[in-house]
Design a protein around this nucleic acid. Structure first.
Lengths: 158, 158
DNA sequence: TTTAACGTTTACGTACACGTGAAGGTTCGT
DNA sequence: ACGAACCTTCACGTGTACGTAAACGTTAAA
């Protein structure tokens, strides 16, 4: 028996099932995200197959992280990434121009968007950290009770 | 016109709407959380009104944080807090015993549960931080492109 | 004492985030 | 040329997290 070799069509583009397997998603979810405008594949084959490049994969991985790890809803994610159109246009525009000034503008725009994403994540982390502080506070109180009990007290600590 | 004075019945217990307003929840949600076994009110009035004490409020605030800030599902939260029965029993047991050894056991049990909660939160933070790292990576690449462009390059950085 | 505001349970409705399936056609690798 | 994988559109199913309404009891204030 043979193991299928890396399909690797054309310029390293992947078909939907390949992407799904790699990321642990279903093809249905990926198409659904596309319906919601969260991403669009870099290209279509002659026959209209969705073809994803590495930046698409990154983006999907990011989306999955936002959902599974950060717990954002798809609505929030589409806010956070409300720039898919801009991204697509950047991709087009960047490759269709040689003018360094235009390219610079495109990159600066991307920077702004990505910086906004980083800020939102850091906000979330801050909120989680304040929850950890609250939990640590409870831990401290419990430890004081324990100390009180071990010192012969009643364990009713203020 | 007069502003209603703080209701403050009996021993500082609050009715469901008071709790809901204070925490920014609906009464429906609070009852729903109770259905799921996430919490039970400290007491009921003669007329069967739910009455909440400050530890209930803390717990509800924690649940809300887990949902809104940490993005846990109610199922995950009930896992995380799968100890509501233990908590209720602790509350009862602690006040119904004077024996320091028994009280110690109860406090040690609570400590274990709260420590588990802290660990789960820190795990979540770690995952978010790795997402931030990924985003920072993208930022770096974009910055390198920018530098390349500003140095007269094409902006096509490997 | 009355009445408005608030509470109770029971039960059905709904928006979101998909999953599942079907029909009918296209494309790709061998 | 074959089958597997893909495409589109349509539609219905599912679990979660509540919303909303009905019918009725409770409580606080006038």
């Amino acid at each position: 028996m043979t193991v299928s070799p890396p399909p690797a069509i054309g310029g390293g583009l992947l078909k939907i099932q390949e992407v799904a397997s790699e990321l642990g998603l279903t093809t249905r979810s990926i198409r659904y995200y596309e319906e919601l405008g969260l991403l669009s594949p870099a290209a279509r084959s002659d026959g209209a197959y969705r073809l994803y490049d590495s930046s698409d994969i990154d983006r999907l991985r990011f989306i999955k992280g936002l959902r599974d790890d950060a717990g954002f809803s798809l609505a929030e994610i589409s806010q956070l990434l409300e720039d898919e159109e801009a991204r697509v246009q950047s991709r087009e525009a960047f490759s269709h121009t040689e003018d360094p000034a235009e390219r610079r503008d495109i990159v600066v725009g991307s920077l702004a968007r990505v910086e906004r994403q980083a800020r939102i994540l850091r906000d979330k982390i801050a909120r989680l950290e304040s929850m950890v502080e609250a939990v640590d506070g409870r831990l401290e109180r419990l430890n004081r009770r324990l100390a009180d009990l071990d010192a012969g007290g009643s364990g009713s600590v203020k």
